[in-house]
Design a protein around this nucleic acid. Sequence first.
DNA 1: TGCATCATTCGATGTTAGTCGAAGCATCTT
DNA 2: AAGATGCTTCGACTAACATCGAATGATGCA
Lengths: 225, 225
Amino acid sequence: MKEGPDIARIASLVGDPARANMLTALMDGGALTASELALEAGVGLPTASSHLAKLVDGGLLKLASQGRHRYFGLAGPQVATMLEALMGVAAGAGPSRTRPGPKDAGMREARVCYDHLAGAQAVAMLDRFLADGIVVRDDEHIHLGPAGPSFFAAIGIDTSNLGASRRPMCRACLDWSVRRSHLAGSLGAAILDKIVAEKWARRPSGSRTVEFTPPGRKAFAKTFL
Amino acid sequence: MKEGPDIARIASLVGDPARANMLTALMDGGALTASELALEAGVGLPTASSHLAKLVDGGLLKLASQGRHRYFGLAGPQVATMLEALMGVAAGAGPSRTRPGPKDAGMREARVCYDHLAGAQAVAMLDRFLADGIVVRDDEHIHLGPAGPSFFAAIGIDTSNLGASRRPMCRACLDWSVRRSHLAGSLGAAILDKIVAEKWARRPSGSRTVEFTPPGRKAFAKTFL
DNA sequence: TGCATCATTCGATGTTAGTCGAAGCATCTT
DNA sequence: AAGATGCTTCGACTAACATCGAATGATGCA
């Protein structure tokens, strides 16, 4: 009767509210200490420690000990993708979706997903990339298209460098708010880096939203849309 | 502190082993009755009923009452996508990544997925069907192709009969071990029936593996590959 | 070396939720 | 109408686990 990977084991890890809060707090790709995560989850320090041990043991979190601080972060991009997929179902199937506040609207528009851009802007960007042959989609995988290298070279992103790492350059990541895919992988990360480096947008601390400045939004649209 | 969709709510739904088994059993997009799902999950009927009520209430399953039967199926493709993402993390981050035993190897090669063949052999079979125009794929749906009726008639499967049922004849089912699609639906079931009827393979009780006999494997390859 | 900070472990408590037997509904068949 | 089948509800039991207070361990600083 048991077939395939043990899905219940890791789903139950995410199933606890305290742990779920910790995981969502880490979805921006950063790493936090146990105390910070305890505050984030709204539980005491011993409780948080117990939860974190389980998450690390379960392979969802990776632990980086630095001196007396112990930083916890998501184990990898796959975990972030899984959490986004969960959010997509939760948003659609939620019982009574509390009306989206202004902050929530910003989240739908542009936010950080692990280390790349997500939200309506990110989905529109991938659409344009596909339309212009900058990337091509092969079933589930995404590859650099014929127009890709020159396009990215023109804006200062060296694609030949990105392929060197063992990490895939392009990946499709399902957007929970738009319910369509956006671009993840090292290329997606490089694009977010550029947006921040050019000061087109800023990332308020304590939130995943990405707030474009008025001129920054124009520049982003001109370059990527 | 609470932000975004209630991810823990639905993760905890998947977090119970019995419910997880039910959901994976429904990943081919088909619909099963409460009794069948109880058997699938390895729990009693009252327990299964309780679980199913929670899954429907949580928006993961949709219920189709037909007479005294009540068919449960996944609420939508997003749910399947989410489960797939969970499997991806579970397969990669699972601590019990024990070396695949002989039984597991058999599972990857050929197994039963509800009522049709799955595994490497099934994926190869669908590839051949697509290559020869026996079936054609239209985005997500699969239809009988121009060469289909005569092909199946030659081996004793009457395709005009299969369309009569309310159940779709062809359906794509994602294979968790190969990560590509194989053929489900009543046609897939008919093929598995033929394999068993011809005694090309046997199905050990208590397992989903399909064990081909040496001559049976040859006959299967000659006919379907 | 001593003190302060950060984090984990231990023990105890309370709540939640999965489980099944028996009974109750609803539907189809004869 | 009577029986059979499929499923749900009720009630009680059990087990797992989240939670916190207090104590212990680990690290860095003065």
